[in-house]
């Protein structure tokens, strides 16, 4: 077939192919479904990003920044342990996925880059704050903690930092025993008597029966010699840290305690 004839016949060739392959224009609903699917995925990504943002907020609110000197040797090593890399990565990943999702929608290319970026970031973060407010940050961080490699959740991390008697740190539920006095039941269920004779009455009042408490001190035989008490709920209030002072020679050699005294 000559070039001219072939060119002339393009219309006929196309019509023949349409006929042979029984092609027909796709229905309108097919396109609605296609664009709807892209929007659905984009909205889902905003939600995933918001959940990850809520978990990130929860982690940053839960981290005991004031006590890093007790649990870690440097602020850097503390950051490496507490920064929720998984959630931050997920927030960024979801933002990027949403951005490209919106770009792939029918009119996505018309939107200004800055407009899409700001809208996606703002909606994810705002929704994240709302979800955090309703406790979803904790649910997500705790729910996935220990179930995903390299991610244990901030509550488990904090537990790990404070469940370290060798370093002079203990975490557990405090109770008062008639025979042994104050006893802390650690995370493995072991009951450890606490030596608190030298503590002031004000300090001892920080023990709340049946609640999680962190103590700093040293193991002497079967007993844990308590130098400082830090209730688990919230960060130590400023006066608490100010009230920490060397009360006995035993406490002088306990590094975490000395660091908190500075």
């Amino acid at each position: 077939m000559s070039k001219e004839n072939k060119q002339k016949n393009i219309e006929q060739t196309v019509l023949d192919e349409i006929e042979q392959k029984h092609l027909a224009p796709k229905a309108t609903w097919w396109f609605w479904l296609r664009y709807g699917y892209i929007w659905l995925v984009s909205v889902l990504m905003v939600f995933v990003g918001a959940l990850a943002a809520a978990a990130t907020l929860f982690v940053f609110r839960t981290v005991q920044w004031e006590l890093y000197e007790a649990t870690h040797d440097s602020f850097f090593s503390f950051l490496m342990d507490v920064v929720p890399v998984l959630w931050i990565t997920l927030v960024v990943g979801a933002l990027i996925a949403t951005y490209y999702g919106i770009r792939k929608t029918k009119y996505g290319y018309k939107y200004n880059l800055l407009f899409i970026t700001c809208t996606v970031v703002a909606s994810s973060i705002l929704l994240g704050i709302v979800l955090f407010h309703f406790g979803f940050g904790r649910v997500v961080d705790r729910g996935f903690g220990g179930r995903i490699p390299m991610h244990e959740g901030i509550e488990m991390s904090t537990q790990r930092f404070w469940d370290n008697p060798q370093r002079g740190l203990l975490l557990g539920v405090v109770s008062v025993d008639d025979e042994q006095g104050f006893v802390i039941t650690d995370t493995r269920g072991a009951a450890i008597p606490l030596e608190v004779q030298h503590l002031s009455e004000e300090q001892r009042q920080l023990f709340e029966n049946g609640s999680y408490t962190r103590v700093i001190g040293t193991t002497t035989g079967e007993v844990f010699y308590v130098c400082g008490i830090l209730p688990q709920k919230g960060s130590p209030r400023p006066f608490e840290r100010k009230n920490l002072s060397v009360r006995s020679k035993e406490c002088e050699g306990i590094l975490p305690y000395q660091r908190l005294l500075k």
Binding site: I10, V14, I18, L23, A27, T28
Partner: peptide, 15 residues
């Protein structure tokens, strides 16, 4: 390519 384009356009006319 042109043939492919026209076939695609026809199938996607409602888009």
């Amino acid at each position: 390519i042109l043939q492919e384009i026209f076939i695609k356009a026809y199938v996607h006319l409602r888009d």
